[in-house]
């Protein structure tokens, strides 16, 4: 790869180290690379936010409004990649899912049946009970009950996330891919919980508006 502007080796990072023009987003760059962060689950939410702002200051299209069309286009591509990377990595569950996807375990794209296969029957029964309880509370317009259910699911989510964390810690230490299956199962559970919370959110928003 050589710099599109000065033909020198641009080096790492978005800008050519020789002529300081913005380079295209490398085609193979993943979310970690875009943010310039190490590929690990163990990232601090706050640090990601800080990096987001720091890079936005340098890469945002507003900074390139007066530059030539090529740099303007690269700026838009970089900033889009940057915002999408933050979206993918900021939340721990989605960060885990992103790492798993890179290892060939696409939790997000699994169909209902595939995801179901990962889950124990007793969990599925529990989910059915939860949803029934939520539907009842919604029908009765019992916001207190809705919030109580949400709190309970939130506690269980925390537990499940700890499982994901433990599995990923092990994987990062040993490179043992088998533990990833365990993380995938926990993420499938978290997906159910997330959908549950979305419904709670919708009910609360409706009550507000």
């Amino acid at each position: 790869m050589s710099c599109w502007n000065c033909q020198a080796d641009p080096g790492p990072g978005p800008f050519c180290q020789k002529c300081n023009t913005l380079q295209p987003v490398p085609p193979k760059a993943d979310a970690f690379a875009v943010l310039g962060l190490p590929k690990t689950f163990f990232l601090d939410r706050k640090a990601i936010g800080e990096r987001h702002k720091e890079l936005s200051r340098k890469l945002h299209p507003d900074r390139f409004a007066q530059k030539d069309p090529k740099e303007r286009r690269f700026s838009l591509e970089w900033t889009t990649a940057l915002n999408d990377a933050v979206k993918a990595l900021k939340d721990p569950a989605s960060r885990a899912a992103y790492l798993l996807k890179e290892q060939g375990l696409d939790v997000a794209k699994e169909s209902g049946d595939e995801a179901m296969g990962r889950l124990p029957t007793e969990f599925l029964e529990l989910v059915l009970d939860d949803r029934e309880a939520l539907a009842e509370a919604k029908a009765a317009k019992d916001l207190e009950r809705v919030r109580a259910l949400s709190k309970d699911v939130k506690a269980r989510s925390g537990h499940e996330l700890a499982e994901v964390e433990a599995a990923l810690a092990l994987w990062e230490k040993t490179g043992d891919k088998v533990v990833l299956e365990k993380a995938a199962a926990s993420l499938a559970v978290l997906k159910y919980y997330a959908r549950f919370q979305e419904e709670v959110e919708a009910i609360e928003q409706q009550a507000l508006e």
């Binding site: 936005s56 507003d62 900074r63 409004a65």
Partner: peptide
Amino acid sequence: VQADLLAGAGPRDDVLLL
């Protein structure tokens, strides 16, 4: 202010809108 920033006229390149 934003037009001024985009035109690169002002000295305030520390300001950015997300």
